[in-house]
């Protein structure tokens, strides 16, 4: 392993002879700070891509004024949001109103801790990695309900309740799809899952136990769209029905926290899909171009393809109705996820 890699692996290094505990703590805080930056940059980049991609799909130009091809537009928006007056409605529950944006961002950031970005580069190599991600992402539901409830606004409450019903409904098929991968690997650790997909792209999880793992991939992808509250499942923020849903009474930086978390979550989900089904940081050509810097490149390019598909769907499909949403979750995805699980189990014992 090159020297800069061991610099990045926890427990193996100490900074300038400091006691191990303190250097570990510094390392952790450094990691957390990096990911705060990463999620902020991902949000800026995500919003920019969203605008540009939607513009291209609708045959317009999108932001063009600020910077070359509008590249600084989202940065200007971020500054604008920081300068906005923070309004807390007089009728709101002020404590909960404050906790909701903090919680949604903290939970999203904490999920980043277990992701593997290339061989050995991981901040927290939890043995229950993927289960931990499922668990910590559930905090998003609590934060959204808090936001909806505490605002003391009918739109907010409706949006919050819708979001909660939607996210918990889609968590079942998503978790079952993850279980399919866990069954075929035999470990919850993200590193082990990536190691199990060693080789060329045909050893990726998506091509195992055909067609059951492929079904699991589709189920997980659709369910993750709904869990992210993204179109075509963006009922919680359906602006034509309930104004801005749970975020109606939020302004300024608190409001942008929700969007920061949404785009950071998009990136998170894309990396998780990549890790589970598309070989993580592994090169699609086996050992060809599979050195350390290329691994990061492969991971990011796979993740960005997933993000592009998410945006593509958003600007192609109309929003589904709430009854169609429940139909999709309970009557389509959940049975298919069970079929995939049982099918993989059968193929494995045969």
């Amino acid at each position: 392993m090159p020297a800069f890699i061991s610099f990045l692996t926890i427990t193996e290094f100490t900074i300038f002879g400091l006691p191990e505990d303190i250097s570990n703590l510094i390392f952790m805080v450094l990691g957390a700070a990096i990911f705060c930056g990463v999620s902020a940059v991902m949000a800026l980049l995500g919003v920019y891509l969203e605008r540009k991609i939607s513009a291209k799909m609708q045959d317009r130009l999108g932001p063009m004024e600020v910077g070359s091809h509008g590249i600084l537009q989202t940065l200007a928006d971020a500054v604008k949001l920081l300068l906005k007056e923070d309004i807390v409605p007089a009728a709101a529950d002020k404590t909960l109103h404050f906790i909701a944006p903090v919680m949604i961002f903290a939970a999203t950031l904490a999920a980043f801790a277990v992701l593997q970005f290339s061989e050995g580069i991981v901040f927290s190599d939890l043995n229950v990695g993927i289960f931990y991600i499922i668990a910590i992402s559930s905090f998003v539901v609590i934060a959204i309900i808090l936001a909806g409830w505490s605002s003391n606004n009918k739109w907010s409450l409706l949006g919050g309740m819708r979001a909660a019903a939607q996210i918990v409904s889609f968590e079942i098929p998503a978790s079952l799809a993850v279980m399919v991968v866990v069954m075929s690997v035999g470990s919850l650790n993200l590193g082990d899952i990536i190691d199990a997909q060693e080789g060329s792209m045909f050893s990726w999880m998506i091509f195992r136990f055909f067609p059951f793992n492929f079904i699991a991939f589709i189920v997980f992808f659709v369910a993750s769209l709904a869990e992210l509250n993204r179109a075509p499942f963006d009922m919680p923020e359906a602006e034509s029905e309930i104004v801005a849903g749970f975020a109606t009474e939020y302004s300024g930086f608190k409001w942008s926290c929700f969007f920061l978390a949404e785009y950071a979550n998009m990136f998170l989900v894309s990396v998780v899909i990549t890790t589970l089904f598309l070989g993580g940081w592994r090169s699609p050509f086996g050992d060809f171009l599979n050195s350390q810097p290329f691994q990061l490149f492969w991971l990011l390019s796979k993740a960005f393809v997933i993000i592009f598909i998410q945006m593509w769907l958003r600007w192609t499909l109309p929003r589904v109705r709430v009854d169609q949403l429940m139909y999709t979750s309970w009557k389509v995805l959940t049975p298919f996820a069970f079929v995939a699980m049982i099918g993989v189990g059968l193929l494995m014992i045969l």
Binding site: I10, T11, N24, L25, M28, V29, G31, A32, A33, F35, C36, L82, D86, P101, V102, M103, F105, A106, A107, T108, L109, A110, F112, A113, V114, F123, S124, D125, L126, Y132, I136, F253, K254, C257
Partner: peptide, 21 residues
């Protein structure tokens, strides 16, 4: 140590939002 990292990430996330506020 791994779980401590997670805790640090949670606290740092809350701190990041607080600082920006």
């Amino acid at each position: 140590l791994n779980f401590a990292t997670v805790l640090v990430f949670l606290v740092a996330g809350a701190f990041f939002v607080g600082m920006n506020l």
